[in-house]
Design a protein around this nucleic acid. Sequence first.
DNA 1: ACCTGAACACCGTTCAAGT
DNA 2: ACCTGAACACCGTTCAAGT
Lengths: 186, 186
Amino acid sequence: MGRPKRIDRAQVLAEALAIADEKGLDAVTMASLAERLGVTPMALYRHVANKADLLDGVVELLLTEFPPPPSELPWPERLSALAANLRTSARRHPSVFPLLLQRPATTVEARRTREAVYVALLEAGVPEDRTGQVERLVSTAILGFVVSEVAGRFRHHTRRQLDADFDVLQALLAAFIQSQGAGQAP
Amino acid sequence: MGRPKRIDRAQVLAEALAIADEKGLDAVTMASLAERLGVTPMALYRHVANKADLLDGVVELLLTEFPPPPSELPWPERLSALAANLRTSARRHPSVFPLLLQRPATTVEARRTREAVYVALLEAGVPEDRTGQVERLVSTAILGFVVSEVAGRFRHHTRRQLDADFDVLQALLAAFIQSQGAGQAP
DNA sequence: ACCTGAACACCGTTCAAGT
DNA sequence: ACCTGAACACCGTTCAAGT
């Protein structure tokens, strides 16, 4: 106690995410963030380049929440687990999650998740030169649904209805993957 | 010339959209918008309740850009036209378009587009009690792709590749609709 | 009815100064 | 190396006042 207040980047990002989750993205202010850390706003600039860099860092946190699903699972269940994790993360961080649509998945963590999808697709029989496109379409459909859900586009629908929609979406995507794995479908 | 500067809501919204298109969403400021209209910032508050209301109005403009496709077309081409229009609108207004994910499609214009999709689905043989869900999934997949594209998630991909992806996505959705029209698919 | 002038609390960011 | 104090230009929004 009484020790010098030292902060590091990880702390800054984690606290920013906490504020966003509690009070929304607009409440994440250099001033409010500094206050929660017990520091002046200017101290933050030693750990983040500016506010955009701060938000970039916060978005990256979302991708580290879940470990990749166990590789013993058959591929359809592995993809389902991935989708469920993504949806859980979105519901936990509704104001930050939509920012994922603005960022190419180039971080180490994002790459790892994408690699997991590639492996699943190869197991499903998708030819290697098509895994990129199939991954993009499948991930985009899931992401689009989940972002719509937490961003408010489905605000007039019941949770029950959205759960059913999500199940059908996954079935549709699984059928698509199957068709890509069984030679060219018509 | 020399006439009193009178502005109305439509002018305010149109000018705000123009600024967003030219310089990005952050450049849409009550001050910058007022300046372009030749008026003080406070004059805007007679026409929009606040900045959130301003942006809501701007987003609505996006839905009025295209007339519904001609009903003489067969349903697959009508849906393709709808998707192509959406993508054109997104490319034209890349900084505003992503906000569509935050709004339930409840405006008159949004309803009209959705109705056009319902009609197409019914023609495809989708049972009436399933058109809601199918419309939601199809629209969400298209919207997710198009928003990803203009928001930057695909920034490392070529236009050629994205065009190919979009075609495959539409084929996949058309196959899904067919399967829903032909009784329950496995 | 519509617009203006002046003012408010707040925002991100800088710079030079402290330890 | 890390944090602070003071300052800057800018932001959305209010209120009372003008025509």
